[in-house]
Design a protein around this nucleic acid. Sequence first.
DNA 1: AAGACGGCCAACCGCGTCAAT
DNA 2: AATTGACGCGGTTGGCCGTCT
Length: 325
Amino acid sequence: MGRIPCCEKDNVKRGQWTPEEDHKLSSYIAQHGTRNWRLIPKNAGLQRCGKSCRLRWTNYLRPDLKHGQFSDSEEQTIVKLHSVFGNRWSLIAAQLPGRTDNDVKNHWNTKLKKKLSGMGIDPVTHKPFSHLMAEIATTLAPPQAAHLAEAALGCFKDEVLHLLTKKPINFHGQHSAAALGNNFTDYINCKPDEKDATVEKIKFDLSKAMQQESEMMPSNKHWDSTANTSASFVMPYSVFPTISGYQFSPSSFGNKGGASPWSQSVCTGSTCTVMDRQSQLHEKLEEENDDDSEATKEIRNLSNIFNSDCVVWDLPADDLINPMV
DNA sequence: AAGACGGCCAACCGCGTCAAT
DNA sequence: AATTGACGCGGTTGGCCGTCT
């Protein structure tokens, strides 16, 4: 014998909530509270599952919820907490009054992930891509690294390929084709049925490039994953060219190279911390002191947001609203 | 003008844990 | 003690809407 079911599954409405349903639910909860979700839809006169009512209330109807845009400080908190807790949305949302885990999750998936990627930071590990790829390139054999680059073709192909081949990237072109001759331009421009062949050529060139690379590397550090060689190899794998301390990210990040500060990489080199970039950024801002455009203000604000080495964001415990478990 | 595409977000799904029976 | 469902959470989906071609 278990509990009685939360609702009659056959007779429940699904999909979008109507204003009438919202009103019924809100009125009922205002009078009776949220003690028993199983009884709430029945007593409130709703043909909904208790679970559906709970979601509607917690994610939308609760009077203490904020419904507007996320502020910079909220975004800052999310990024910092995500670097510590990962996808623990409820933990992160607990630090943001008026925001639900669903809100935070949606905002992360639709905005923040892209912004971090656009800055050359892996949104999963919060490390610069250049760090990650340098690590991979020093631990993987060339064929494996080539496969990895192929897998990344759809997203961060320019960065991956540059890391693996150490050839310069033209970030200012429509497509960065310099990494492997014109392979990527070919790939992007060619007809769909030609793309397989292009991928094969890219794979071949990558293997060749990696082969050459391995011949150039010191033999005692060859793909030694145990040795602490990462830093030794970081410099040559430094990926993003820096222009006056910051730069527009490539078109492959999908942000259209717009003026948003998030689209500008302030963490551009493996051996260069965000603090280093910040100094350059501030210098850049000093130069542009007269320019008080919205874009410049945003850049200035960004330089304050990302004020730590970006592997783990600086988050003083005092900043936390709710204690972390 | 209209269809394709992509971003956004509310809602649903499925799983793990806890608690009622 | 075993069974069953509520609850909470993270992942995923589907539909709306704006933009692009």
